[in-house]
Design a protein around this nucleic acid. Structure first.
Lengths: 341, 341
DNA sequence: GAAAACTACGAAAAGGTTTTCGTAGGTTTG
DNA sequence: CAAACCTACGAAAACCTTTTCGTAGTTTTC
């Protein structure tokens, strides 16, 4: 049961530990004969190098940390899938932590990962994170850090994102193109950078088309666990406040589906009375009725790109090259479905 | 940048490494004065024990492995959430791997985790896994293994499951209770134990109510990435084959939603013409129209219970008590919605 | 006043691997 | 036949922590 070590192999063959180690790693200064003997015995004894010792010696563990605000979330779980797929290819393991959109937890988790001495960290930050010292600490310690989706613009590190502003502009433009004259917006949290950018994209589209921006048409959602209810609630409120609205661009698909449901309950026809565009392209949006026009957010690709960038930096550091931070912007696309004309 | 070690602290204070180590861990044979000095210096230097060295010395890493068939999956992502929540409480980290329902990958991943010397492993096995030696190897190596949801009955280890058979029986009984006379079943893969059990539950309910079991009413789905399409396809086929069916019990919500969509497209009224019961209670099922009657599968609780059991075994081993394997069966519940009368 | 007990610390081994540096013995070169 | 060079291996340091066992010096006990 107890694990076989290099020393045990060395003793059985009457050679030194160093030779065994070198034989297994095909060093040139071991004779083929010895290599053969060592490898054979290693196989029969089912020798597995002790990862703890290797880590200690090499100062790396081929393990990275991933901090994500939520796991039960179509977009984020796709990101994870992308990260895991790429990590597997490169022989890395991934420790996953969920910050629950809490700054305090996020901070604690960063410290946990640093203590664990992971080789690098991938993170999508919590909505509530305002202070970034825990993150700059990572960089100061010389560990690669790559942010994705929910990033801190101020931090100097690589980032993988979509152009939220442009995507939101596209979404709003689509409403305008399909004939909407008065367009509301259900935005996300006031302090979330993504929500801000999407809001700005909405506004920009209006202005470019000579629509008058009306702040009373903008409703706020927390976009947390009760997104669906928030969508319903805001949709009802919207109908009370503004009878003339004929289009809504909504920050997140789940909120949009809530709105869709509320409209159905109140006998409002989508898209005849009101058109809706969501954001993210959750699977659900394609099977709901009417199906939801939305912006496709490439989660799997984002995860893949984030890990690739981290791996690149890991290699650069190993070769003690200067690390080049990159900002990678992935394409979004408008997915036209039945909630718009 | 480079990390502070016990030796550096020892040198600065002109004491030995062992005393520093003991001071930080509040050993009784260090004077309060020395403890004070050590702890203060450790704090100002921001000393963090080298996890690699600690692991090597203590032979444990406070890290467990988790292998799961799919991550982008409402139920499984909830399980992960439960595991992470519980692991966090107990100070454990979790390395997550996705087997993609592939036996080969699963085997490779188990070996990866063993090489990494995680303290224990949680797994929900792939549909294609028939051979369990890679899993019994884990147990032979003296590492705790806990299986959940998709288990191998033959393996001697702790398990956390639901009673698929009973849940399926409840679902079918509900169709009977609401007046269905001829009930079809869309089952999952022939070799998946869960699918088998659900099928048996369906059959049992029929027999207990003196319905005649008709194998032509049972349709098979792979329940992979194209579950939704499978549901649509089978629904259409069902309508062609059997005009008289007025109820369907479906192995998975996503397939059920596909069926729901197909029925809507073909003008079949749910539940008036046909009633449908799904399985899992995906969030989606509550927002779709008509909303789907289904069986609630407690993912979060399952994850929590699985980690708890693993942790219990970890503690038992440490105290070298005999490890007691447990089979934990969590409650399911029928969630009545609008797809049944 | 000697034996026993206690206090506070240190030396050193153990955990297992990786890698540098030596070196003994043999072979090639000029 | 020296000098230079290979070949194949080993010793040992380094990575850093934990923990057992000693021990010098002090205090208590009878």
């Amino acid at each position: 049961m107890s694990q076989v070590t290099l020393m045990q192999i060395a003793e059985k063959l009457n050679i030194s530990v160093s030779t065994v180690s070198k034989a297994l790693k095909d060093y040139p200064d071991v004779s083929d004969k010895t290599k053969g003997l060592v490898k054979e015995l290693a196989k029969t004894l089912n020798y597995q190098p002790n990862a703890f010792a290797v880590n200690l010696r090499t100062k790396e563990s081929k393990t990275i940390g991933l901090i994500i605000p939520a796991i039960v979330h179509h977009f984020f779980s796709n990101v994870i899938k992308g990260i895991l797929a790429q990590a597997e290819k490169k022989g890395y393991l991934v420790i996953i932590l969920q910050s629950n959109e809490s700054y305090e937890l996020e901070k604690k988790q960063i410290n946990l990962l640093l203590r664990q001495r992971v080789d690098g960290i991938l993170i999508s930050i919590a909505n509530t994170t305002r202070n970034f010292t825990h993150l700059s600490d990572v960089i100061t310690q010389g560990k690669p850090l790559v942010m994705f989706d929910k990033i801190a613009k101020i931090l100097e590190c690589s980032k993988v994102v979509i152009d939220d502003r442009k995507a939101a502009k596209d979404a709003t433009q689509h409403l305008i193109d399909t004939g909407c004259k008065r367009i509301a917006h259900f935005r996300g949290p006031l302090l979330s950078q993504n929500s801000i950018d999407r809001f700005l994209g909405y506004k920009e589209a209006l202005e470019e088309n000579n629509f008058i921006y009306d702040s009373s048409l903008v409703y706020i959602c927390e976009c947390g666990d009760s997104s669906f209810e928030e969508g319903k609630f805001n949709a009802k409120k919207l109908l009370q406040d503004h009878k003339d609205v004929d289009g809504v661009f909504i920050n997140t698909d789940l909120v949009a589906i809530g709105a869709l449901t509320a409209f159905a309950e109140m006998g409002i026809k989508v898209p005849d009375d009101i058109s809706i565009v969501g954001f993210s392209n959750w699977f659900m949006s394609s099977v709901i009725s009417p199906s939801l026009t939305t912006i496709n957010q490439p989660g799997f690709e984002m995860g893949k790109a984030a890990f690739k960038q981290l791996h690149k930096e890991l290699k650069q550091r190993k070769k003690s090259k200067t690390v080049v931070y990159e900002k990678i912007i992935l394409d979004t696309a408008l997915v036209k479905r039945d909630s718009t004309k």
